[in-house]
């Protein structure tokens, strides 16, 4: 693989909502194939630390595929092939030396439908610390679980029933439980694949608030169908269409003053 072409354009323009931190995840010319079918072609996108990057676009445009490249979840799909450069803190995640298991501990992921394990609430959150051996004592583990649940804004609701099954919670609570599970291993990046698509508006608002709080500490990449949601929670937005990026820009600019006709058509509801 050739050295990536360095893109010197400022991807995120300066402004009041602009991220003050550097680039966390950098991708260049990423293409993904499922067997013979190309799902993504030549996507280059930089994602800033301590900011939310939203990926929008119609169904099947490749935004979830792109998201799954970032923690190499495509490895678990037979016949999937990824080309191009994906760097986390300047380190190629697809390099031979990188263990996808270790990578995924640094890049957490939240899925479309809440998927708590069939275990208690406590065990769900303790899962990551346990498998990675992050804690040495039971009290330390309890602290980690409590911290994660607090940061996910779920502690007050579940503190007195930690031993109940994770699936006994409501959909919105389950999704926050899953987020707590992801942050319990203290990742650097959190990927969210349409995290609110199975939730009602109140639960959605609660998750969006949470995303905004988590932004203080993490690099967050969120795939969403809802343009309103992208506008509410993100600082940077990338518009995907037909497996390619059409436009990248600061969220407020992209939604008020898109440069591409296709972006305008999409955000004004002419297709998608």
């Amino acid at each position: 693989m050739d050295a990536p072409v360095i893109d010197t354009r400022p991807i995120v323009a300066a402004g009041p909502k602009a991220p003050a931190h550097g680039i966390k995840v950098r991708t260049r010319d990423v293409s993904v194939f499922y067997g013979d079918k190309q799902a993504l072609s030549d996507v280059s996108l930089d994602m800033a630390d301590r900011a939310v990057t939203a990926l929008i676009g119609p169904s099947g445009c490749g935004k979830s595929t792109f998201l799954r490249c970032l923690n190499r979840m495509n490895d678990t799909i037979q016949g999937a092939r990824v080309e191009g450069v994906i760097e986390l803190d300047g380190e190629d995640v697809n390099a031979r030396a990188v263990d996808p298991v270790a990578l995924r501990a640094r890049v957490g992921m939240v899925f479309q439908r809440p998927n708590p394990f069939p275990k208690s609430i406590f065990e769900n959150v303790a899962y990551g610390p346990r498998i990675h051996g992050l804690t040495t004592s039971k009290s330390e583990l309890q602290d980690v679980v409590e911290q994660a649940l607090r940061r996910a804004g779920l502690w007050d609701e579940v503190a007195d029933r930690l031993d109940q099954s994770g699936s006994s919670l409501s959909g919105g609570q389950q999704q926050r439980l899953v987020i707590a599970r992801a942050i319990a291993v203290d990742p650097e990046v959190i990927l969210m694949d349409e995290p609110c698509s199975a939730l009602d508006p109140i639960a959605t608002a609660r998750i969006e608030e949470l995303i905004d709080e988590l932004r203080q500490q993490y690099c967050i990449v969120i795939v969403t169908h809802s343009m309103a949601q992208a506008a509410r929670v993100s600082q940077q937005t990338a518009f995907f269409h037909m497996g390619q990026i059409v436009e990248i820009g600061r969220t407020d600019e992209l939604f008020t003053n898109p440069k591409e006709q296709r972006t305008l058509d999409y955000i004004t509801g002419r297709f998608g």
Binding site: A102, G108, V178
Partner: peptide, 9 residues
């Protein structure tokens, strides 16, 4: 998927 995404083998 949830487990793999946590970095489980």
């Amino acid at each position: 998927d949830g487990s793999y995404a946590m970095g489980a083998t």
